[in-house]
Design a protein around this nucleic acid. Structure first.
Length: 302
DNA sequence: AGGTTGACCTGGACGC
DNA sequence: TGCGTCCAGGTCAACC
């Protein structure tokens, strides 16, 4: 369920609560679906590690970890004045980000929330919810818990994760237009393709198409350059507004505190089938494209 | 190769 | 109250 704004809200909420904490223990359920990395391996990597930062890449929550021991010492030694001086010459083979932030990132814990995944920070004595699949016990006594009834979420450990596609919030007009050149698929499907743009899902695809005045079924290759630019700016606008409002919460979504977002009151077309278009009064239509329901205004979108 | 479909899961809403 | 049906924000393997 969660798309870019919801994942960003969750990542920020978790970051504020667990940054700097040490993971004392890690537990995983025996359900195999969520575990992309072997649970024994995840437990080994996570136990004893310090969480240095939690952020979002595409629809994935990424937890940067610093592991102590010999590797930690190495990283510390490297982070002297020489490393700082070098950092001006951006690039470097592994293209690591800002100097002091990147030092000591020895692994990343990746959480994809799927449709119904939630990340909660609780005191250790709060009873665990049904469908809890992972628990990281923190040195402070609190726990970071992953709860996911439908088990479409995925947990893994890796390094240097960059996501499958481009970031919709930062991509420029030229590169954005290039993504869709020659594509015969409906524009709606192209927007949902994570290998092109990552982070956009069904809600924000529909909302951006409405703001650009483009029908979801239009072939991507036939969307004009001007429309593509309206689509890009509409997408940025709608994603930023949704982040500011804490995301949408149609049913399952909650942030790290268990609080719902408020963007759903801003929806212009998504799940408003039959209701009047806020621009022209025409009833909003619903069609199915590539198995996903799509909502649009037949008068405002062409 | 690019595009489309169904399968993966549980649970909530709705109709009878 | 209970049962059946439909629907759900995501991905991925398997097909055309």
């Amino acid at each position: 369920m969660p798309e870019l704004p919801e994942v960003e809200t969750v990542a920020n909420g978790v970051d504020a609560r667990v940054r700097g904490e040490r993971i004392a223990a890690a537990w995983f359920s025996d359900k195999p679906e969520p575990m992309k990395t072997n649970p024994a391996v995840m437990e080994q990597v996570l136990t004893g590690a310090v969480i240095t930062r939690v952020h979002r890449v595409g629809k994935t929550v990424v937890m940067d970890l610093e592991r102590r021991g010999t590797r930690g010492k190495e990283a510390k030694a490297k982070a002297g004045p020489t490393a700082r001086a070098k950092s001006k010459t951006k690039a470097g083979p592994s293209a690591s980000p800002q100097d002091d932030k990147s030092c000591g990132v020895s692994a990343q814990f990746l959480v994809h929330l799927g449709m119904t995944g939630r990340l909660l920070v609780n005191d250790g004595d709060v009873p665990r919810a049904k469908h809890t699949h992972a628990v990281l016990s923190l040195a402070s006594g609190r726990e970071l818990r992953f709860v996911d009834p439908r088990r479409f979420g995925r947990l893994s450990v890796q390094e240097g994760y960059e996501g499958p596609g481009r970031e919709p919030l930062t991509i420029g007009p030229e590169e954005f237009a290039a993504l869709f050149r020659g594509r015969r698929t409906p524009m709606k499907s192209a927007l949902l393709n994570q290998k092109l743009l990552h982070g956009v899902g069904n809600i924000y695809a529909d909302e951006a198409l409405f703001r650009a005045g483009v029908r979801p079924r239009r072939q991507a290759a036939r969307v004009t350059r001007a429309e593509l630019e309206r689509l890009r700016t509409g997408l940025v606008k709608v994603l930023r507004l949704a982040i500011a409002l804490g995301g949408s919460s149609v049913s399952d979504y909650v942030d790290a505190d268990g609080v719902r977002g408020f963007f759903q009151v801003e929806h212009r077309v998504y799940q408003r089938t039959g209701e009047a278009c806020r621009e022209c009064g025409e009833p909003i239509r619903r069609v199915v494209i590539a198995g996903r329901s799509s909502h649009y205004c037949g008068r405002c979108q062409t």
